[in-house]
């Protein structure tokens, strides 16, 4: 089973970002997704910088994928998207239908691309259509359960790589509004790039102090950290191809190592989950995998 590092969802300072990916070049990862998927105002790294990081990681033996922005609003967003699609070197993860059109339309459709988790692909008819249009891998929407993913794979006419969101705060929602700017009574257009101060986003709690969500610019994430570390035997039994680990402010490399050890059978699942707990910014959850509210943590036998 392959391990993938998902796109960096937070906004870290340039040097911190470059140092992080320098570390990841040595991590036991098979695939690395790169690029800004959340907010077009974030430019500590420009596309040319991302492409340099991509070359370094590719030289270290990683499969590199460029991820497209999820919410595309302006012509300048579309320009960036066209440059990503036309990069000619790395495969592209399409995260909105505009990206799909650019990858599949025109005179020279791209033969091989990845259907990202925000395309809302929930059934074999839709996934089969995207497979015919050149998608060779599907990243399941995080809200899909183990059973729903298995049923979809069972109903699909052709082989296709399947990737699941296996670790990290869940990317739950996107908005035109920036909630980080709102917190500081700033407008999005003059946000002062406050996201740079929060390596794991800003915690949002209920009025009785329970961790609930995380504000990450225009994205809203779960407070709890979705992780399948305790569910790996089931994941392996299902024959899924790739597990996605979402970068977190600290300890991402240790989390990757735990996944590697648990997948290799060197660490029992319960113990892997136990060992991960001090590495997480908040308590774990796995409800979505079990067809339950995502916030729940179900202990697996």
């Amino acid at each position: 089973m392959k391990l993938a590092l998902g796109p960096l969802l937070y906004y870290w300072p340039r040097q911190a970002t470059l140092a992080f990916y320098a570390d990841m070049a040595d991590a036991p990862l098979d695939v690395v997704y790169l690029g800004e998927t959340v907010c077009s105002r974030r430019h500590e790294l420009r596309l040319s910088d991302w492409l340099e990081v991509a070359e370094t990681l590719a030289a270290a033996g990683k499969e590199v994928v460029l991820s497209s922005q999820v919410l595309v609003e302006s012509e300048s967003d579309l320009k960036t998207l066209r440059r990503i699609v036309a990069n000619g070197r790395f495969r592209v993860e399409a995260n909105d239908m505009g990206a799909v059109r650019l990858l599949t339309g025109g005179d020279a459709p791209v033969a091989d691309w990845i259907a990202g988790p925000t395309l809302n692909i929930f059934n074999p008819a839709t996934l089969g259509m995207f497979a015919e249009l050149g998608a060779s891998r599907w990243v399941a929407p995080p809200e899909m359960s183990r059973q729903q993913i298995a049923q979809l794979r069972g109903g699909l006419g052709q082989p296709m790589e399947v990737e699941v969101f296996a670790h990290g705060r869940l990317p739950l929602a996107f908005s035109a509004r920036c909630f980080t700017a709102r917190h500081y009574n700033l407008q999005k257009d003059t946000c002062e790039f406050r996201c740079l101060q929060f390596a794991d986003g800003i915690p949002l709690k209920t009025r009785e102090g329970e961790p609930f969500l995380t504000l990450n610019g225009i994205q809203t994430q779960s407070a709890h950290v979705h992780t399948l570390l305790g569910d790996l035997p089931a994941v392996q039994a299902d024959g899924l191809d790739i597990l996605r680990i979402s970068p977190q402010g600290d300890h991402t490399a240790e989390v990757i190592d735990l996944f590697r050890q648990a997948l290799a059978g060197q660490l029992p699942p319960a113990e892997a989950l136990q060992s991960a707990r001090p590495l997480l910014p908040e308590a774990p959850c796995n409800g979505f995998w079990h067809g339950r509210p995502g916030v729940e943590q179900l202990v697996t036998a």
């Binding site: 999820v70 919410l71 925000t118 809302n120 929407p141 995080p142 809200e143 869940l170 739950l172 929602a173 996107f174 908005s175 035109a176 969500l213 809203t220 779960s222 409800g287 979505f288 067809g291 339950r292 509210p293 995502g294 916030v295």
Partner: peptide
């Protein structure tokens, strides 16, 4: 939230 891109309710209630 962008319609079709919001799983907040799924997270809280399933």
């Amino acid at each position: 939230m962008v319609e079709g891109r919001c799983a907040l309710s799924a997270y809280a209630t399933g």
